[in-house]
Design a protein around this nucleic acid. Sequence first.
DNA 1: GAACGTCCTG
DNA 2: TTCACACCGTCAT
DNA 3: GACGGTGTGTCTCAGGACGTTCAA
Length: 566
Amino acid sequence: MVVDQNQPEITARHYYLENFQVLSDFVFQHYEGLLSPQETHFYHTLAALPEPAKLLCIRLLMRRGEYLRESRISYPEIGSLADALAHLTNTGLIETAHARNAADWLNLFTKDELHNITPMLNAAYAGGSTPDTLPEALTHHVDLLGDTPLDLITRLDTVYKISCKEHYQVFLLLFFGNLHQDLTEFVLRDLGIRGYENYLTDTTALPFQSRAQLLAYQQYYACESCFDEAVEQGPDALRSLFKALPDNTHNDPVLQRRVHQLYNHIARQLEREAELTDAAIIYQLSVYPPARERLARVEASRGNYRAALDICHQITAGPNNSEELEFAGQFSVKLCKKLDVDFSPASRYRPPELAIDLPASQLSVEYASALHFARTGHCYYVENSLLTAVLGLTFWDVIFAPVKGVFFNPFQRAPLDFNDADFITRRRALIDNRLLEITQGKLREILFKHFYQKSRLVNPLVQWQSINYTLLSLAVEKIPADHWLVIFDYMLRDIKNHRSGLPDLIYFPNCGGYQLLEVKGPGDSLQKHQRRWMKHFSEHQIPHALVNANYQRVEHTAELPALLAG
DNA sequence: GAACGTCCTG
DNA sequence: TTCACACCGTCAT
DNA sequence: GACGGTGTGTCTCAGGACGTTCAA
Ligand SMILES: [Mn+2]
Ligand SMILES: [Mn+2]
């Protein structure tokens, strides 16, 4: 008997029903107190449906739009579609779409269909008719036979509104803690496509504590989806978007980060619109970087050098990250010049440099440089992927340690507090223990234990496709333990900000040792965080250099005809 | 009619 | 659709 | 060289069915 290994594993017949029930039962069991009467009713109504109707409802909920055409619904496992649809409409879980919302569902019809129905509808639809005038155009204009455009469309197909979708969204938000994951997570897991670490989930400390908090999340997501539109519409739209954001984040660090991040985006856009007063007001409300940096710049550009300098002093006294700290130092110098105050500028680190000449090719300058160094050893273009992966593998069990309240569903790529400043402090003992083990020479053992045991599982620091045994093995062989400690220490200080800016290449010369090389072609120079990494390297004798590559990239637009002609 | 994007599926 | 990085133009020095 | 805006490469689970757009 031949078994096709590529054939996805057959899941249960009604896999999506089982998945939905796991999700909705969890939410109902743990969050019943947070649900509105309508949401509770949705749960019970759906549960009480006969199986075919239940299956259909979940199918419809899994689809993208809030509106659907009946002709686009076809599920062999559901016997009578008409019966199932009747159940759903009778219970109010779905309803036929109304002309007044035509702007939301008219695009379910193809251009051809709309064009064929009536030229006047076509004119109304394509010719810039607003959502307000569209329903009127649909129902008031009449053709020679007395039919309105709506009549003609209705004859073409029935459109349903999945009215229980808003309640389903609440269930998704409560279960996943966000709105970008859904039931496909279950499927991908069961098909073996995406694997999550089997961490311990803690249902006694769930992220949502009150309905107000839940509503604030929804409010945030509604605003976030409006941002692009507000940018196009201008300052007034941005201001009302700001006002529409929740002002209470209910002691939820995740929600606060998201809201304040959006504050920053709104204020930044107001800066571009030269609305500096409002930008400053909003920046002042934000705790999240780079709010203080932007605020200092805004104050300075308005001539308030004193205020700007005060902000810089505040940053220096309590920086949120290395970027802020460096900014405050450099900007203080500029401000002090304006204010005629003495201030000693900090000299910036200059890494050792070496220059190489490369033959022109189609490769990127990084790959071309890697080839150059590969002549005298092994060289990999790794950027951030190698060192972050080694950190993620080495500290795998620390990252997924069962800290209270950080794991609440089986589909998390990281603990809830992974990007928080206190991620380290809450795991201090585990981290110190692991660092001690590294000093005892156990790095290779721990690294490869996790490399094999956790292969392909999701880890916020590990991109599996960019690492392999050979590379990891070379790295742990050539980079001494005390260097790893220095690298890990710096990354762990601020994982979110210190997981990038690492040099392009890692070079293992035939003569032994290793070197981290940042390649710069003509017209490029070190970014700030790249320089900070190199400064850290130099303070701890980690071999590094800036490679100035004299290189001309050849476009590979030489098409076949051109080649034949030439 | 190819190329591309979106949606749906397990 | 995300992120990190390179690249490019502009401005002040 | 500082700064801001923009482009690029790399990820997405993979594959099929559509609809839309655009170049020949
Ligand atoms: Mn790079
Ligand atoms: Mn580089």
